[in-house]
Amino acid sequence: MSSFDRNDRPLVDVRHLKQYFNITVGPLRTKALKAVDDVSFSIRSGETLGLVGESGCGKTTVGRSILHLYQPTGGEVEFEGRLIKTKSDINELRKKATMVFQDPYSSLNPRMTVSDIIGEPLDIHKMYANKAERMERILELMDRVGLNSEHASRYAHEFSGGQRQRIGIARALALRPEFIVCDEPVSALDVSIQAQVINMFVELQEQMGLTYLFIAHDILVVRHISDRIAVMYLGKMVELADASVIYDQPLHPYTRSLMSAVPQPDPKVARANKRIVLSGDIPSPLNAPSGCPFRTRCPHAAPCCAEAMPEFKEVESGHFVACHRVNEL
């Protein structure tokens, strides 16, 4: 929702990203767990791309693979038009792209003071000339995220969840990044704090021209902050469109059922809406169904769905869907 001046140059371009993990399934036997399987999308400079999906569908893995915290099994990631390949590319990427973590409790080292946590990226990349400059920068960051600068020498466990998440955000901002992967940054917080933190994300985006990949499972949160929304299911991307389009005219059956589950504040509207309840559970990514991964739970599944994975194609301008029967529904 940023009013930041936007152009169409993609800041991050992800092409056919694959991330498999080897899981031991028996003595000396391993099997590839396809956490992310052939995902392609791009994020324009200054926009917020929301990424939603059930837990275990690979949202977090996408975020981490883009940042090369995991070495991707396949595919390419381009950042500012440069392919990320060698170690020095990754090193450069670290200065410009960073991450805010889900759990504000485990993502801060309990043995470090707030100023050390926030200053760590500066220490790693030696971004200051002397101690005074470092402290000045840390205090500026704390001020920016609304933390009291008197608390710089305290330990993380002395803060509340919301304050801890602010520490995590200040740390992410330390290197003046352009791109931040927000990995469910508000799902560990209670609702009143969620609003504060989300508004802070929006403000920071406006002030600093940030680009976000905003991962969450709460559609309302994602809709509030995102320009475009991508929906993932079982390691694959099933739909990608502008936030309002996804919300009002979803095309993929999975997105439709997801949207019908969003709570409506107006009881009249809520009663009129029909909830699409899916049967069964999400299949294990270790034995994903053949063809379309959603076919086992899809109310519109046809024989053709079992044969081939539907292509992730643009059906309208800027609206991508992966479904064989998208034109019939």
């Binding site: 670290r94 889900q102 759990d103 993502s107 801060l108 080292n109 990226p121 790693i124 990349h125 290197l175």
Partner: peptide
Amino acid sequence: EQEYVLAAKAAGA
């Protein structure tokens, strides 16, 4: 396996 180790990696450590 703690998340703060991943956070340090994400910061370039």
